[in-house]
Amino acid sequence: MADLSVNVAGVQFNNPLIAASGTFGFGREYGEFYPLSTLGGISCKGITLKRRDGNPPPRIAETPSGILNAVGLQNPGVDVFINEDLPWLKQQGTVIIANIAGNTVEEYCEMAEKLSDTDVDMIELNISCPNVKSGGVQFGTSCESVAHITSEVRKHCKKPLVVKLSPNVTDIASIAKSAEAAGADAVSMINTLTGMRIDIHTRRPIIRNNTGGLSGAAVFPVAVRMVWQVANAVKIPIIGMGGISTWEDAVEMLMAGATALQIGTVLFSDPYAPVKINEGLNKFLDENNIKSVTELTGTVVPW
């Protein structure tokens, strides 16, 4: 048995697998398949200051090896999360990450402040949601805006702060550097890539929001490339995600430079993916006489 535990910004995870925000709700449903302590952590559904109903359906479309989604941050609001979901989540024996999104910098700060007084283990700043009209990705696409929002939230945030990066940018390494310089303890990446599908019979986009975010195996090579570029640019740890579906993908993402991993879309076809990926990781480490999964991080040998 190799040691699968990892440490990100002072927070200890029993294994590197974290459920990706928005694919796992607040844990209750997948908790009916297996104990949530199977996972190293859970990044909860993105929350906003006030309740949001999200976009009208359809909110999902299938693509070759992936999916598009445009949920539009449906959530009950930060107060309901703190009062009704967090106490239960904290009893599940896994790290709890709150994923926050806002329309203004002030809203992000207010949420960070509220969550700092709770038992949440980490805060993930979602400045990369492509599916809402205002807020979300607009904060995440220039170095200046990333630096500004990160430093403002930092002033109000007493928890380890993870900034979740958007892949819809020209130079992700410089964005990551700006987040690091402004006080981020870690970055998580990648959020979804904006995409679109059209029903050729009705000439209507399949998703009611017209465009949606692409995730799943289709984005994996893009995610690996971006994690590798960011790993070469910053010192803070990276939580890598985007299309991880098998234990081999997990190893690849760690080698590219990730310290921990999030998995999302694969859960829709296989709810047991985290169990299988952990087993595979463990076996790989044992077979290669590697004592700890942390020894894989950033070990790619580039040409």
Binding site: G22, T23, F24, E29, P58, R59, I60, V71, F268, P271
Partner: peptide, 13 residues
């Protein structure tokens, strides 16, 4: 249209 089928991903609104 559905994703998870169990109420976690909120796509089938």
């Amino acid at each position: 249209r559905m994703g998870c089928g169990v109420g976690a991903c909120l796509v089938c609104a």
